[in-house]
Structures are given as structure tokens and as C-alpha cells.
Measured scan of single mutants.
Amino acid sequence: TTIHVGDLTLKYDNPKKAYEIAKKLAKKYNLTVTIKNGKITVT
């Protein structure tokens, strides 16, 4: 599972963990989490 945050690309083997991290990042920086085709993007 890949999380895209701006220019950063973070890879995680565990999709659930990746989603949790994405949610935390989104909350911290007041951003939105988008999931599309298995890719998690924080914008």
C-alpha cells in the first residue's frame, strides 16, 4: 500500500496501518485522505 503526501511516497505492507497513518497525517495537517485504486493520497 502506498501513501502519497505531496512529493512524499510512503510504502507500507499493511494496508490498514497505512490507512491509519494517512488519517493521522490528514488530521495533523488538516488535509483530506483519498483512496483510489488501492493508493492512498493525502491532499
Results as ranks from 00 to 15, higher is better:
40 I>F: 05
16 K>M: 11
29 Y>G: 01
33 V>W: 02
25 L>E: 00
42 V>C: 06
18 A>W: 08
35 I>V: 14
5 V>F: 15
26 A>Q: 04
20 E>G: 05
29 Y>T: 00
3 I>Q: 02
36 K>S: 14
14 N>A: 03
12 Y>G: 03
13 D>C: 12
39 K>V: 15
17 K>S: 08
14 N>P: 03
35 I>S: 03
25 L>H: 01
3 I>W: 00
30 N>L: 05
39 K>F: 14
16 K>W: 14
15 P>Y: 15
39 K>M: 15
23 K>D: 07
33 V>C: 04
19 Y>V: 09
38 G>I: 03
17 K>N: 05
27 K>A: 14
9 T>P: 04
15 P>E: 10
15 P>H: 09
39 K>I: 15
18 A>H: 01
23 K>L: 15
3 I>P: 04
3 I>H: 03
15 P>L: 14
24 K>W: 15
21 I>F: 13
23 K>E: 12
27 K>F: 08
18 A>T: 02
2 T>V: 12
7 D>A: 14
21 I>R: 05
33 V>A: 02
38 G>D: 09
7 D>M: 12
36 K>I: 15
12 Y>P: 02
8 L>N: 03
43 T>L: 10
41 T>M: 14
25 L>R: 00
20 E>D: 09
9 T>V: 15
4 H>E: 10
17 K>D: 09
39 K>T: 15
27 K>I: 10
21 I>Y: 11
21 I>S: 05
30 N>M: 06
29 Y>W: 08
24 K>T: 09
16 K>Y: 13
16 K>D: 12
7 D>V: 10
32 T>L: 09
33 V>F: 06
34 T>F: 11
41 T>H: 14
29 Y>L: 06
24 K>V: 10
28 K>C: 09
4 H>Q: 15
28 K>M: 09
2 T>P: 06
19 Y>H: 08
32 T>Q: 11
43 T>V: 11
4 H>C: 15
15 P>Q: 09
28 K>S: 02
33 V>Y: 01
33 V>N: 00
17 K>E: 12
31 L>E: 01
14 N>L: 05
40 I>Y: 04
25 L>W: 06
4 H>A: 07
14 N>T: 11
24 K>P: 00
32 T>Y: 06
